[in-house]
């Protein structure tokens, strides 16, 4: 399969790989996908007191496009408020990475990961 340069770059040099400590202040986690489907993404955001995402980390089990989509998303959410992060759409991810049609689901999963992480943050902080 021919991958775009951008997918290959994120695959070869994934950005922000890793995990935050579970007890760290302002950390929320979104885990989406299923091993049997071939993709699992874990996206973590670290939100500052001002409600801005200071940092993000990811781990992904999945194909090159899934790895690239989640790597890209960690770059995009940084510096955004939660609402701004929720505005990131899968179509933007797919366009940026020039994903082929059979890989669109990877960008949808990355969008879902953002939503799941934000929901986790809100659950922890608005309860």
């Amino acid at each position: 399969m021919a991958y775009s340069e951008k997918v290959l770059d994120h695959y070869e040099n994934p950005r922000n790989v890793g995990s935050f400590g579970k007890e760290e202040e302002g950390v929320a986690t979104g885990m989406v996908g299923a091993p049997a489907c071939g993709d699992v993404m874990k996206l973590q955001i670290k939100v500052g007191k001002d409600g801005v995402i200071e940092d993000a980390k990811f781990k992904t089990y999945g194909c090159g496009s899934a790895i690239a989509s989640s790597s890209l998303v960690t770059e995009w959410v940084k510096g955004k408020t939660l609402d701004q992060a929720l505005d990131i759409k899968n179509t933007q991810i797919a366009e940026e990475l020039a994903l082929p049609p059979v890989k669109i689901h990877c960008s949808i999963l990355a969008e879902d990961a953002i939503k799941a992480a934000v929901a986790d943050y809100k659950k922890k902080h608005e309860a």
């Binding site: 994934p14 996908g33 299923a34 699992v40 993404m41 992904t60 089990y61």
Partner: peptide
């Protein structure tokens, strides 16, 4: 890079996880 590996190393039973 794999969240599954991380969970395995943490002793999580992956078969018991409810995946969406």
């Amino acid at each position: 890079l794999s969240p599954l590996w991380e969970m395995y190393k943490d002793g999580v039973d992956l078969d018991a996880v409810q995946w969406a």
